[in-house]
């Protein structure tokens, strides 16, 4: 697998080069992977890459682009919106000539609707925000500051908010909080994969059996 760049459209016009990890052998089966978001992205990164290795070995080209503002991206996270992220993933799909898409957790919210897709343990945006807000309330309480969910949500919609170390703009928050994964994708549940979801882990982990199961499921779904 190699690092690659792809042209990501900017909301102000023009393009900026964003990073992707790819396994590209110019094969006909080409899978765009939309990574999990925020802290879950860190916890699932290794599982994602290990699954890519297995898909590569099974004859599937894989493309794991950064969402603008995340991972290696130089774009400011607090200027992103879900519309920008959807446009970015559609652009990455075109650039890499993806034939299928795989969303992971919150990444399921951003799989290009035109591609046949799989959603691994899909989650609503509201659930992601609820957990990140809870983490902020707990951290603030430890620091001797009392905050409550309702006030934080009002503040977030008005001027943006930092949750669990991630600065989210007001536009992002307002658009994001109502998002749910589309029903058009094939869902892959954790029960199908076995073991506990690695996004639950307090520390990033890995699991060979889960990577095997995910790759097997996706490769057979994509077909020959």
């Amino acid at each position: 697998m190699t690092p690659a760049n792809w042209p990501c459209p900017l909301p102000t016009g023009g393009f900026v080069q964003e990073h992707a990890l790819v396994a590209d052998d110019q094969r006909p089966r080409r899978l765009l992977i939309v990574p999990a978001l925020f802290d879950e992205g860190n916890k699932l990164r290794r599982l994602t890459v290990e699954t890519m290795r297995r898909l590569d070995a099974a004859g599937v080209d894989c493309f794991l682009p950064d969402l603008p503002g995340c991972n290696e991206s130089q774009q400011p996270l607090d200027r992103q919106t879900p519309t920008i992220w959807l446009g970015a993933m559609a652009a990455a799909a075109r650039h890499f000539r993806a034939t299928h898409a795989w969303g992971i957790r919150g990444g399921c919210l951003f799989t290009p609707p035109a591609l046949p897709s799989w959603h691994y343990a899909p989650v609503k945006a509201a659930s992601i925000l609820r957990q990140m807000t809870r983490a902020r309330i707990l951290a603030s309480r430890e620091a001797g500051r009392e905050e409550n969910r309702e006030d934080l949500a009002v503040a977030a919609r008005g001027r943006g908010i930092e949750l669990a170390g991630y600065p989210l703009g007001a536009d992002f928050y307002r658009e994001f909080e109502g998002l749910a994964p589309s029903a058009g994708a094939v869902a892959i549940t954790q029960e199908q994969i076995g073991g506990g979801g690695l996004w639950l882990r307090a520390e990033p982990g890995e699991d060979r059996d889960q990577a095997d199961a995910l790759a097997g499921y996706l490769a057979s779904g994509i077909g020959g």
């Binding site: 802290d39 809870r134 983490a135 707990l138 951290a139 669990a164 996004w199 639950l200």
Partner: peptide, 9 residues
């Protein structure tokens, strides 16, 4: 705090 938030959820 992030892990505790995850645990509670």
């Amino acid at each position: 705090s992030m892990a505790v938030a995850g645990l509670l959820t």
